[in-house]
Design a protein around this nucleic acid. Structure first.
Length: 374
DNA sequence: AAGCCGTGGGC
DNA sequence: TGCCCAAGGCT
């Protein structure tokens, strides 16, 4: 029974013919010709003939996980200038790295970045592993990143599959099975197209194709080196691929957030727990973030404030923010406390907030308070 | 193994 | 405006 089910799953895979070696070689040659002609100039991409610095490539690949090139560029420049080598980064203070990462999101990446730098600079003597398997064992380095570094920096033949590659393969071979279920099929197709020579350039070329021409919406098929071979385009499906299984709705969580100022004007911040949402980042204290109606400010002041205070007022309006899996609405309560309050956290003068690892949602809350509260 | 984990930009 | 998406990894 189970065997029969597996067989039928395989049958749907078999409906997508894997290209033969000659076809793959032809497609690969046309792709590299296009890449060599229209190569994008990216800060982490070595010029033709230059030897890539594994540290720089690794840093860029971590930053680029689920993050756009435009968002990464300024962070990448600041990191590379401040910590030019893996040894320098390994020696950095945790807080300095989290502060420098603030605003880029997915903060586990920053924690793993530091862990990884310390493994490489310490146990590995300052050198990144030169194999896919060795790289894959590093914190924050998964299948994609290991393959990318291995082929870009060390010339390994590695199958690089990211969102771009999946989209390009789905269109080129008209794969109508929806993601994420179609991942194995798309990987098989990417593998069939992956050459041994210039494997790193090939990988970057497919990703560039996805980023610049074979875009999620309104692909520029007329400029594509694979236009005539693209089965998705031939079927009039290109723009609709890859299909995706619908994802769950995002609930809205709500909370009352406390802007608490000491007599000298300093603001109370706290550090969040090391793991989980915004792990290790700084926050304004608040009631729990729950998918319930907005709490009554007076009740929140009584139940959830990190220290007692008499003088307070709720600010008009809401601070809204959307995370990967929920929306957040915040009511800000402004309060004043005495000169020597006792509370867990750090008291920060308003002109030194930028020295702390404040994620975007907290910057929004601070901006709202400074705008509406004064 | 499906859910968790940020943010900004484009349409 | 609200929704989709981006060079994924971890648990």
């Amino acid at each position: 029974m189970a065997r029969r089910a597996a067989r039928s799953a395989t049958a749907s895979t078999a409906a997508v013919p894997v290209p033969d070696a000659a076809t793959a070689a032809d497609l690969g040659a046309r792709l590299l010709a296009w890449y060599d002609r229209d190569r994008r100039d990216l800060p982490w991409r070595p010029k033709p003939g230059e030897t890539p610095d594994p540290y720089a490539v690794w840093l860029s690949e971590i930053m680029l996980q689920q993050t756009t090139v435009a968002a990464v560029k300024p962070y990448y420049a600041r990191f590379l200038e401040r910590w030019p080598t893996v040894a320098a980064l390994a020696a950095a203070e945790d807080d300095a790295v989290m502060t420098a990462w603030a605003g880029l999101g997915y903060y586990a990446r920053a924690r793993n970045l530091l862990k990884c730098a310390r493994v490489v600079a310490g146990d590995l003597g300052g050198r990144f592993p030169s194999t896919e398997e060795g790289l894959r064992a590093l914190p924050g380095v998964g299948a994609y990143t290991a393959a990318a570094i291995a082929c870009i920096c060390f010339g390994c033949r590695a199958v690089v599959v990211d969102g771009n590659v999946e989209r390009v393969m789905a269109r080129l071979f008209a794969v109508e099975a929806p993601l994420p279920g179609a991942k194995p099929i798309l990987r098989t197709l990417a593998d069939a197209l992956t050459p041994t020579a210039r494997c790193g350039d090939h990988a970057q070329a497919v990703m560039d194709l996805g980023a610049t021409l074979c875009t999620p919406r309104s692909p520029a098929c007329g400029l594509c080196p694979w236009m005539d071979a693209c089965q998705g385009r031939r079927a009039g499906l290109a723009e609709h691929l890859p299909m995706k299984t619908p994802k769950a709705e995002r609930p809205t969580r709500r909370a009352v957030m406390f802007w608490i100022q000491r007599k000298d004007g300093a603001l109370l911040l706290r550090q969040r727990p090391a793991s989980g949402l915004l792990g290790g980042m700084m926050e304004l204290p608040s009631s729990p973030w729950e998918a319930v109606p907005m709490p009554d400010p007076a009740e929140a002041v009584t139940q959830d404030a990190p220290l007692p205070f008499q003088t307070w007022r709720p600010l008009p309006g809401l601070v809204t923010h959307t995370f990967s899996h929920f929306h957040l609405e915040l009511t800000i309560v402004m309060a004043r406390v005495g000169a020597n309050p006792r509370a867990r956290g750090v008291w920060v003068p308003l002109d030194r907030l930028e020295e702390h690892a404040l994620p975007t949602v907290m910057r929004k809350a601070i901006h709202h308070a400074l705008t509406k509260g004064f």
